[in-house]
Simulated assay, not measured.
Amino acid sequence: MVDRPNKPSALAATPQQPIAQASVNIDSAAGRVTATLPTGESVDVLLHGATVISWKDASGDEKLWLSEKAILDGSKAVRGGIPLVFPVFGTAPDHAATSKLPQHGFARISKWEFLGKSTSESKQSGSSAEDTNVKLDFGLSSSSLDEKTRALWPYDFDLIYSVTLERTNLVTSIVITNKSAEAFEFEVLLHTYLRVKDINNVAVEGLEDSKYIDKVDGASTKTQSSSITITGETDRVYTPAKGPSEPVVVTEGGKKALSVVRDNFTDLVVWNPWTEKAASMADFAPKDGFKTMICVEAGSVKAFQTLEPGDAFEGAQTLYTL
């Protein structure tokens, strides 16, 4: 065998490109956590109430409505975004366990703990692009409540709230665990404010043939005959006729804009304050902001849920851009 002093060396292995990772920024001073995907989508969550205050697509378009006068310093609930309602929806003067709690309970006005992040990457079929998802976990427990709130609702519990950002959707899920020696009753709702261009061109589809409580009309029970359009103050609690996995779709100008899919939530609230109600709320701005928002809210609020000692309840919603 001839020894060739100038023989070519072995080819070097082609270096693999590093997988792009989602970035997560924790701003302790502002009390917020921001996550951004490599493709540009982002979500912003306040530790106050674990309130999602922003969700943007890759082009930077905001999907959630936030009042220009929303108070973000932790002194009161946030007007807009996705406030978390627990353990009571509205007020319940006839329900002894929650009758003395503030409107919509204490979860949205409590300081939550950021428990950490997790990310995942999955190869798209037939493409070299990477899908990167990021999940942010937040926690609230009975031990973190102040003495006044503990006195008003003296049950032991753990709440884990997860916000998962994906390229085309946002998933918000909650796990409620009863750590008391006795059962407790609760209601829970994801009070989602969606941003729209013009409420006059908006319709909500997928609730046809569904029964609802019309809170603007003396809490009378009605049945939805067609898609929902907003022409005045609207405050309705729907029990969807179709299953939770059936999308409820928000359209603008006849085009699908966004859909809501529920998981283990029995109800859906549709709300818009319109002119007079918007004018009466000090933190609602601009006053004609009702023209660019609609609330479509997944939850279980038509009746109290009973959670036995040691048991857990889990519910979620997924918001899809269309």
Rank of each mutant, 00 (worst) to 15 (best):
L84W: 11
K179S: 08
V45P: 04
D217W: 06
L11T: 11
G206P: 01
R108C: 11
I26A: 12
Q124S: 12
I53P: 08
V88D: 00
A129T: 08
K7G: 08
K179H: 14
E208A: 11
A279Y: 02
L115I: 09
S245W: 08
G105K: 02
S300V: 11
L152D: 15
K302I: 08
L319C: 05
N25Q: 14
A107V: 03
A10V: 13
D3R: 08
V85A: 05
S227Y: 03
F106Q: 01
A10I: 10
P93N: 10
H48V: 03
A70S: 12
R150D: 11
L64V: 06
T266W: 07
R167F: 11
K148W: 08
A151L: 07
L145M: 07
E185Q: 14
V260Q: 01
N200D: 15
E276M: 02
D283V: 05
L170Q: 01
D57H: 00
T51L: 12
K197V: 14
L165K: 05
W65F: 15
T275I: 14
K211P: 07
D156Y: 05
L64S: 04
P18A: 13
S226H: 09
I294V: 15
S67C: 07
T306L: 11
A92I: 05
G49L: 12
G315P: 05
Y161W: 10
T275F: 11
F304W: 07
V296T: 03
I176W: 00
L66F: 11
K222W: 10
D198G: 09
F89S: 01
S9F: 13
Q224T: 00
D73G: 06
I53D: 07
L11A: 15
Y193H: 09
G40S: 11
T91V: 13
L189G: 04
F157Y: 09
Q17M: 09
E185A: 12
L115S: 15
Q103Y: 07
